[in-house]
Simulated scan of single mutants.
Amino acid sequence: MPKLLLIATGGTIAGSAADTTDTSRYRAGALSAETLLHALPEASTLGHITAEQPFALDSKDMTPTHWLALAALLRERLASPEVDGVVITHGTDTLEESAFFLHLTLPRSKPVVLTAAMRPATARSADGPMNLLQALACAATQSAAGLGPLVVASDRIWRARDCSKRHTHAPDALGGVDAGPVGVAIGTHIRLDQAADGGAPCFAGTLPSALPRVDVLAAYAGAPADLIDASVANGAAGIVLALAGHGSVPDDWHPAIAAAVARSIPVVRASRVASGGVMPQANFDDAAHGTLACGRLTPWQARVTLMLALGCGIPAERLQGTLQRA
């Protein structure tokens, strides 16, 4: 039987509430990894399972420091012959950011699967137990390794890079926008419909000891350009602009962008629109203004990529290529 490792970080999947019908007021991360497994006796048929709990967080409190610690722990565990696959429990609020960070940094030698829940474990019809059981089944499927980190929820399997939170409270809140699932879970039967791409993670080398500050600034009707000035003044090493449409830059933001670029602070154009991304030179002359385009990435993914790129010392002339490859 495969040797599976459960790494619990908290979240609603480990949440507890006094009222079994109230899914909005609960304490996230209240239950331990062992408690979650104890509620799933069926899991013992999937593999030999051990558990670790590096954090017990509401994922709104997850930080880049936690990402680095989690990635370092996972790299160490994945290198061990005592681990054949890993499942990570996480809160849904920032799962897409942690998942994308792991997509960029983890080797693809063994399955890594994230899962979560929208209802606390004490709720009627809690979604966490089945999500966790299916995630363990997916982690026991060796062919899942080459797809990179995956997200399993609501009977569907998504690549970490394609999964986001699309609804504020529905049980099937997690899913893709521009890409569909790569497989399905029917009970504990896993069917993967996409072959492994064989690609290595974008940041396969040594992890940086810390990640620099990169801010995401939203454009909206009448948004002041001094948002950029304030970000620079407060020490941002990079800026991602969540712009309207296909990365449309308000005219009165041009001087502030130019000032940031003149200080060698990378400025990335992204879009607040959920689908489509922003291509270089689209709607804006990136070459003339010294800006970068996020490609297919969301603003949050562009931020994660830029933080890693700057933390790893990637030179300015390679940043655009890095964003395109992420």
Rank of each mutant, 00 (worst) to 15 (best):
A153F: 13
L70A: 06
T45F: 13
L174D: 04
A30Y: 07
I265N: 08
L4V: 01
L4C: 02
P120Q: 09
T9I: 03
R296M: 09
A218M: 13
G295K: 01
G180R: 00
P129G: 11
I190C: 03
L132Q: 05
F55T: 01
A17V: 09
L6R: 02
W300Q: 15
P224T: 12
A179F: 15
A144E: 07
N131S: 03
A153R: 04
H66Q: 14
L102H: 00
T35F: 09
L95M: 14
A316G: 09
G15Y: 10
L217H: 03
A99G: 08
T21M: 12
T63E: 01
A326V: 00
E42W: 06
L36Q: 12
N131E: 03
L31Y: 11
A126D: 10
T45M: 13
A33E: 04
H167N: 11
T65V: 14
P149V: 03
G198S: 08
V267Y: 03
I157H: 06
Q134A: 14
Q324H: 12
A259I: 02
Q194V: 15
L133K: 06
H169P: 01
A204L: 10
L211T: 05
A8Q: 09
A287F: 04
A258H: 10
A30D: 10
T45R: 15
E97C: 01
A293M: 03
A293Y: 05
D61L: 15
L227Q: 14
C138D: 06
R166A: 01
P107E: 11
A145C: 10
A17N: 08
R75F: 12
P224K: 08
S264M: 11
L114W: 06
A223C: 05
P299C: 10
A99L: 04
L207Y: 05
V113N: 09
T206A: 15
R77G: 07
R159V: 00
C312M: 14
T141P: 05
L40K: 10
A288L: 13
A51I: 12
L192W: 07
T168Q: 11
Q301H: 10
A262R: 01
H167G: 01
A221T: 12
R77W: 06
L106E: 04
G146C: 07
S154K: 02
A30Q: 11
W253T: 02
L217N: 00
R166P: 00
V152E: 10
S264I: 02
A225M: 05
C294V: 07
V261T: 12
L133D: 07
H48I: 12
Q142A: 15
A173I: 00
A256M: 11
R75A: 09
A160N: 04
A117W: 05
T45K: 14
E76V: 13
A237D: 12
A135G: 11
L323S: 07
I7P: 04
D252F: 13
S231K: 08
G290C: 04
V113T: 00
A270P: 02
K60P: 02
T9L: 06
S80N: 08
L31N: 09
S271Q: 01
L70V: 04
A117I: 05
R325Q: 15
A262M: 05
A221N: 08
L74V: 11
T141Q: 11
R77K: 15
V267N: 05
R25I: 10
